[in-house]
Design a protein around this nucleic acid. Structure first.
Ligand SMILES: [Zn+2]
Ligand SMILES: [Zn+2]
Ligand SMILES: [Zn+2]
Ligand SMILES: [Zn+2]
Lengths: 128, 128
DNA sequence: GTTGCCTTCGTTATGATATAACATTACGGT
DNA sequence: ACCGTAATGTTATATCATAACGAAGGCAAC
């Protein structure tokens, strides 16, 4: 598979600099001066990055985060997301795969698992 | 809280008749002749129905399903979704809540949990 | 009853997310 | 150089969701 192109790297760098998930259009805004001019370029980069496990999509936010763990390669993380401050913390738990297999049954071929937990983080609760 | 209005019931009935998740615009298409004329009416109905646990949103599909279980009230189901045929099967597993609590930690207030499993169901695999 | 208030519902417009379709360029193999 | 393929750029469009405002309905105080 081809290496990362310059668009891909710009998108990845942008995500790594953010402590929150960014939408494709957030990324576009932050890279427009650099080189990216249209949504499709961002989406193409995101797709490539996601295939390699460098970026994850947070479904319920329509947004993307850089994987917090560079060495891992592809994996199936979950996310804990604060609705107030928007921070998304990636985690893994082996029990998730077992739950998924039990739910899907032996003849279902699992391709992806999305587990997202929403609520209020401790600092935000204290502040409120 | 107010009872279901006629729009709400039309939306719920439409979802119950479908064996797959429907987008808000799918619902709109199927109810336009009845009474619903604009997306916002569908979204308002869906919001009310979701609050009562009568429908669930499937995040990664941007779509909605009628709850398979009428008596339950509010609960936290997961979904097993076939990418080929689009069927979404609702399930529950108590282990999910424990995984979520462990991941979120004691000071995070969990509000919602979304667990969605994507892949190919047995009939679709056999057909392919 | 009618006035004022609040909630629901309808209508129009717009914002936000994502992809289709096609042109252009980059690049390796011959 | 020539071709075929993959990557990138460009324009347009499809899809999903909400803002803003007004009309209609219910309910209590007067
Ligand atoms: Zn990761
Ligand atoms: Zn927070
Ligand atoms: Zn349910
Ligand atoms: Zn299937």
């Amino acid at each position: 598979m081809a290496n990362l192109g310059s668009n891909d790297q710009r998108v990845l760098t942008t995500l790594k600099k953010s402590n929150k998930p960014l939408s494709a259009y957030d990324i576009l805004d932050r890279t427009r001066s650099a080189a990216l001019k249209a949504p499709v370029q961002v989406y193409r980069a995101l797709q490539k990055l996601e295939k390699r496990g460098l970026v994850h999509r947070v479904e319920a936010l329509n947004a993307f985060v850089a994987c917090c763990d560079d060495h891992h390669g592809l994996h199936r993380p979950g996310f804990v997301v604060c609705r107030d401050c928007g921070v998304a913390r990636e985690f893994e738990d082996k029990r998730v795969a077992r739950v998924a297999e039990d739910a899907a049954g032996p003849d279902f071929l699992i391709e992806t698992i999305s587990l997202e937990i929403y609520g209020r983080c401790a600092p935000c609760r204290a502040a409120a």
